[in-house]
């Protein structure tokens, strides 16, 4: 079963002032015609600069905000009519977390479980298990106010899974965490996925999307501009670069052998290596190396470089993510701020 399916999902906010040109109250289109499909068991990444409409989309999918139009089902329930059922089946961890500062992590967990209909015994039992699983025993009984950023995130995440949701929403889960805490948090998320929880997370860290997610989509100016697995997306942008290091004497001969091989898009040589741009490194390399070896050419080293999500982002949006962040900050975070939307030539 698909965990999330949306078609043409839109959110238009009433704008405070009227459009200067037409005098009409056009509203701000924060999210436009978003089609999503999240499969069961995936870690799905929702990527984009601040103000792209990620959080708005997530707030619609978590029943906090009513969509303006479109259709959507979440865990098989209609988003427009069955928000109660959706709430029972999803967990949501917002950017701010939302733990009570003056209660302990453990108390926060138990209360959250109680609000989802667990009995006191069930809630305590589940909280005990989460404390063990998330390695929170050292601090679970202290009040949250004393926690570090990483510890807080563990409590927030624990609250999100107290009622064993089928689908867990995480809004910018690792923003502001140090690299060590981030890595630990990723481990916990992977553990949850192994337990069968589908995870939908927003992020503006490309490396996070790359390392953690099975599938992702890139959002910009309220639209989905690309979707697929990280590998697919990267392959669409450009192929892999394979570099084979050789004795300088053999470079010309090797280039002759490899030129025109299936899957090789282009080839260039350096003083002591041959560089190939290939569609997929894992199909070309096993064929290329025996050719060289049969011709008696010794291979000194082999390197393969895949394109990064940064390059993907740059291609589909026409600018680097860091630039988009600066633009969003300068433009007051307006998602549909008109000029330049869809400017990447991506349709």
């Amino acid at each position: 079963m698909d965990m999330i399916v949306t078609q043409g999902l839109c959110k238009t906010f009433k704008s405070k002032g009227k459009d200067k040109g037409t005098g009409k109250d056009a509203g701000v289109e924060a999210v436009r015609d978003v089609d999503l499909r999240v499969r069961e068991g995936e870690i799905y990444g929702f990527l984009g600069p601040n103000g792209a409409g990620k959080t708005t989309t997530m707030r619609m999918l978590t029943t906090l905000m009513a969509p303006t139009r479109g259709t959507a089902t979440v865990v098989g329930h209609d988003l427009f009519r069955e928000s109660r059922r959706i709430r029972q089946d999803i967990g949501y961890v917002s950017q701010k977390g939302g733990a009570y500062e003056y209660a302990s992590g453990y108390e926060n967990l138990v209360l959250q479980g109680r609000l989802y209909g667990l009995t006191r015994a069930e809630a305590r039992d589940k909280a005990d298990r989460i404390v063990l699983q998330f390695d929170m025993a050292d601090y679970a009984r202290r009040i949250v106010q004393t926690y570090s950023g990483g510890q807080r995130r563990h409590v927030d995440l624990g609250m999100g899974v107290m009622h064993d949701p089928k689908l867990l929403f995480l809004d910018e889960p690792t923003t502001g965490l140090d690299p060590h805490s981030r890595a630990r948090f990723w481990d916990v998320i992977r553990t949850l996925r192994r337990e069968g929880i589908t995870i939908f997370l927003t992020t503006h860290y490309l490396d996070e999307a790359d390392q953690l997610c099975d599938a992702l989509c890139i959002m910009d100016h309220g639209r989905v501009v690309a979707a697929g697995s990280p590998e697919e997306l990267k392959r669409e942008v450009s192929g892999d670069v394979v570099e084979i290091g050789l004795d300088p004497a053999n470079v010309a001969q090797a280039a002759g052998l490899l030129e025109g091989m299936g899957g090789v898009c282009s080839l260039e040589t350096t003083e002591n290596s041959v560089k190939l741009l290939v569609e997929s490194g894992e199909t070309v390399l096993p064929a290329a190396l025996p050719r060289l070896v049969q011709a008696g050419i010794a291979v000194a080293r082999v390197e393969m470089k895949r394109p990064t999500l940064d390059e993907v982002f740059q291609k589909v949006t026409g600018r680097a993510l860091t630039e988009a962040e600066i633009e969003a900050a300068a433009g007051g975070g307006g998602a549909g701020s008109g000029a330049g939307s869809g400017g990447g030539g991506w349709t």
Partner: peptide
């Protein structure tokens, strides 16, 4: 601190 939002998504 996001408490109201969190509570609103519970049942």
């Amino acid at each position: 601190s996001g408490i109201i939002e969190r509570l609103r998504v519970t049942t």
